[in-house]
Amino acid sequence: MTTKIDARGLSCPQPVLMTLDEIKAGKAIEIEVLVDTETAKENVSRAAASQGWEVTNVAEEGDGYKITIRKG
């Protein structure tokens, strides 16, 4: 299933922690994370990679980004 995380308006490290929590919960195989800073985009992508997940898409959405990550 795909889970959505809205981390817009949150400063680091919150977007990363929310993503890691969702990964570690073990239910999702795909997660969409909404962020609104360049830093959060890079950090969330890195957090996913550190857990063996793959960043399958990064799209601009509104004033921020939608990052799609998938369990490897």
């Binding site: 400063s11 680091c12 990363v16 830093t39 890079e42 950090n43 969330v44 890195r46 957090a47 550190s50």
Partner: peptide
Amino acid sequence: VEMGIIPGGLNR
């Protein structure tokens, strides 16, 4: 660092 716990200033 490897988990992405990184301050915004670092990336800038």
